[in-house]
Design a protein around this nucleic acid. Structure first.
Lengths: 136, 136
DNA sequence: CATTACGTTGACGTTAACGTCAATATTGAT
DNA sequence: ATCAATATTGACGTTAACGTCAACGTAATG
């Protein structure tokens, strides 16, 4: 049976290399809602997953509100047909946005590869011309 | 021969759907440096390209400083060997960072596809059970 | 049991990336 | 020439995403 592990705020902070202030801030914003033991926050594995999603979102340039949205997509209270249809629509929209980002990324990576190649050639030229001068 | 076209600030603003304030702000930050005709800013095609790079960077979640960096990679004053080597290193670093982002993006898109699929199934279930009830 | 480490809630400070005036030229179409 | 549209330079305001105290309570450890 899976050990139902829990975490303290500093556990998550050190694991993900963020400050406890950041984690509490995410809670203020409604992104996390840990249980309490007395006044101390206790985080469940599901909270840890949410935190991972938030941080991944940050790396992709999402705002916290957008990440909140995405978390809602993975973790919904989907009752009726209407709700389900809205969820599906949101999934499509997000994916469309991400596909544009995906394209931008590909182009930028290609540009960088080309720039790098160019400078390597330039570097080789400089060095070879230097050698020539020396060897004359 | 290529018409050496130029742009006014409002031309670029409307083309890229940003405000003139934004464009002037980018200039303050050293990302653009248009020439002047009297006091009026005149933008060259190269400025337009830079602006495109900045906006692409924004879509990818880059800061303006990072975009400035990238522009510097495409548009350098690369003189000596040392400079060239630094440029090559920077290209590699940026690409490494972008590759992580690329991976994150792929995972998130996959997650969203799965979520969407799940909700479609759920929706079909709800509807078919509804029909059953009605048809009994 | 005393101290040191860790936790909590405010409250205010900070930086990036603009928005929003205001006051003042300049330009372009009539 | 004139008059609306557009330009310019300040200067201050705003929002997101935290940082940085302060003042206090709790936990664990030699």
């Amino acid at each position: 049976m899976p050990e139902h592990k829990t975490y303290k705020i500093s556990d998550l902070a050190t694991e993900f290399d963020i400050t406890t202030r950041t984690i509490r801030f995410y809670e203020e914003k409604g992104l996390l809602s840990p249980t309490r033991l007395g006044s101390t926050r206790i985080y469940q594995p599901s909270d840890r997953v949410k935190l991972k999603l938030i941080l991944r979102g940050k790396r992709l340039g999402l705002t916290l509100d957008e990440s909140l949205d995405i978390i809602g997509l993975y973790d919904p209270a989907h009752g009726n047909v209407d709700q389900l249809q809205k969820l599906i629509t949101k999934c499509r929209e997000k994916r469309t946005q991400l596909e544009r980002q995906y394209h931008d990324l590909e182009v930028m990576m290609l540009d960088l590869r080309n720039a790098e190649k160019k400078y390597k050639v330039a570097l080789a030229d400089v060095i070879s011309s230097h050698k020539t001068k020396v060897n004359v």
